[in-house]
C-alpha cells in the first residue's frame, strides 16, 4: 500500500496566500478614489514656478529707483497674482538701517492649497 504523499501541501498554502493578497489589493483599489485625488492634487497643484516667478518679481521691484514706479509695479504684482495665479501675495521690506547693511523682504504667498512664506535678505 502506498503511503499518502504530502509533498505538495505547499500548493494549497500558496493558494491561500495568493487569495489573501488579492483580497488586500482589492481593498487598496477600493480606496483609490480619495488617495488618487489627494496625490494628484499634491503633485499637480504645487505652484513651484508661480512662487519662483512672483518671488523674482518682488525682489526686482524692490530695487526700482523711482519711488512712484515702485509703488505702481508692486500694486500690479499683487493684482496680477490674484487675477492670473489665483493667489494672495503680500510683501513688505525694510531698507538697510543702522548696523544692519542688508535689505530684508518678507513675502507671503497663498493660493488656497499652498502657502509659502519667506524672509529674503540681500547679500
Amino acid at each position: 500500500m502506498a503511503r499518502l504523499n504530502d509533498d505538495a501541501q505547499w500548493i494549497v498554502l500558496m493558494g491561500f496566500i495568493v487569495s489573501f493578497a488579492l483580497f488586500f489589493i482589492a481593498i487598496l483599489i477600493n480606496q483609490s478614489t480619495i488617495v488618487g485625488q489627494t496625490t494628484a492634487e499634491a503633485v499637480s497643484e504645487f505652484p513651484k514656478t508661480d512662487i519662483r516667478e512672483v518671488r523674482g518679481m518682488i525682489i526686482q521691484s524692490e530695487f526700482l529707483g523711482d519711488e512712484n514706479d515702485k509703488t505702481n509695479v508692486q500694486r500690479e504684482i499683487r493684482n496680477l497674482s490674484l487675477s492670473r495665479h489665483n493667489a494672495v501675495v503680500e510683501f513688505s521690506s525694510s531698507p538697510p538701517a543702522g548696523s544692519d547693511p542688508y535689505t530684508h523682504i518678507e513675502m507671503h504667498y497663498n493660493n488656497g492649497v499652498t502657502a509659502y512664506n519667506e524672509t529674503w535678505r540681500s547679500e
Partner: peptide, 18 residues
C-alpha cells in the same frame, strides 16, 4: 465630496470666492 477652492488668507485677511 470635493470642496471648491474658496479660501481665507489669515495673514492678509483676504477672502477669495471663486
Amino acid at each position: 465630496l470635493a470642496e471648491p477652492r474658496w479660501f481665507y488668507d489669515g495673514q492678509t485677511k483676504t477672502l477669495v470666492i471663486n
